[in-house]
Simulated scan of single mutants.
Amino acid sequence: MNNQTFNMDLLQLEGLKVTASSSILAFVLFLLIYVFIMVSNLGLVVLIFMERSLQQPMYLLVCNMSVNDAFGATVVIPRLLSDIFIPAGERFIYYIDCVIQAFCAHFHGATSHTVLMIMAFDRYVAICNPMRYTTIMTGRMVAALSVAAWVVAFVLIAVNVGLSVRLSRCRSVVVHPFCDNASLFKLSCENVLINHIYGLISSMGTMSVSLCSVALTYLRIAIVCLSSKNTSVNSKALQTCATHLLVYVIMLFSGFVIITLHRFPHLSDERKLASILFHVVPPSMNAIIYGLQIKAVRQRVMIIFIRKKIAVSEVK
Rank of each mutant, 00 (worst) to 15 (best):
F6Y: 08
Q12R: 11
S21Q: 13
I24A: 14
F27S: 08
F30R: 13
I33M: 14
F36R: 12
S40C: 10
L47D: 02
M50I: 10
R52D: 02
P57S: 03
M65Q: 08
S66E: 12
V67F: 11
D69W: 10
V76F: 08
D83W: 02
E90G: 01
E90P: 01
R91W: 05
I96D: 13
I100P: 00
T111L: 02
S112Y: 05
D122A: 04
R123C: 05
N129P: 05
Y133E: 09
M141H: 01
A148F: 12
A149H: 02
G162I: 01
C170W: 07
V173T: 05
F178E: 01
C179K: 10
N181H: 07
N181F: 08
A182G: 11
C189Q: 03
I197W: 08
C212R: 12
V214P: 02
V214K: 11
A215S: 07
L216A: 06
Y218H: 09
C225T: 11
S227Q: 13
S227N: 11
S228D: 06
K236C: 06
L238I: 12
L252I: 13
G255R: 12
F256S: 12
L273V: 15
A274P: 02
S275C: 00
S275Q: 11
I276H: 06
S284A: 15
M285G: 02
I288W: 07
L292I: 11
R300P: 00
I303M: 10
E314D: 13
V315M: 14
